[in-house]
Design a protein around this nucleic acid. Structure first.
Length: 191
DNA sequence: ACAAGGATACCT
DNA sequence: GGTATCCTTGTC
């Protein structure tokens, strides 16, 4: 069905590269007997204490402790009094970085993802493994570079022009996603 | 355009 | 202890 993505695969310091690479990977949620897997179609990179949009820009705090751990675990936080945000911690231990999962094929918006898949802070700091009930799989799906857009990250104006201006948000054009999925389900693409 | 809503970081 | 702010969404 797919190759489980391991922690070692997301521990390089190239957070932006990992973010882009995660497009087309499957987010797999298993709860009891049911399993749901959806392709990742939108992500954002948050990299290091220098990045003023990253929570780690304020250094180590109880909340950001998760970001400093070795990549391959989930960073889930609660914001605006009602939404959980799902991030994959990346990089080696001591390098605070993460990729925010902003959109899946069929679910757009980070708050909607966690609500639909019942993801809460109980997963914060937990390894992205099948045993945890939430992991990533590589199914050999690769979107054409032409269908991928790079824009500034959403909702981080507070970080100032230098950091808010970085085009670290990546997403696949909605239309392209549907077309590709149809091809995959018919065995014409992927392996 | 704006309220909802609770955790968080930083202040007094 | 008080409070400004927040990696959003739904409804106005």
């Amino acid at each position: 069905m797919g190759r489980v993505i391991t922690a070692a695969q997301v521990q390089s310091q190239d957070t932006v590269g990992i973010a882009r690479w995660l497009l087309g990977k499957a987010l797999v949620r298993t709860r009891g007997a049911t399993a749901r897997s959806l392709l990742i179609t939108e992500v954002e990179a948050y990299d290091s204490e220098q990045d003023l949009a990253c929570h780690a820009s304020r250094g180590r705090t109880p909340r950001t402790e998760t970001l400093y751990r070795a990549g391959g675990i989930w960073y889930v936080y609660f914001v605006y009094g009602m939404h959980h945000m799902l991030n994959l911690v990346t990089g080696p231990e001591g390098h605070p970085a993460a990729v925010l999962i902003r959109g899946l094929d069929s679910i757009r918006g980070p708050g909607r993802i966690t609500r639909a898949l019942k993801i809460g802070r109980n997963l914060n700091g937990i390894g992205a493994t099948p045993e945890a009930g939430l992991h990533l799989e590589d199914r050999g799906i690769d979107f054409a570079r032409r269908s991928i857009r790079a824009t500034p990250r959403i909702g981080v104006e507070y970080a100032g022009p230098r950091w808010a201006g970085k085009r670290w948000r990546f997403f696949v054009e909605p239309g392209k996603v549907a077309a590709r999925n149809a091809a995959v389900s018919q065995g014409a693409v992927g392996h």
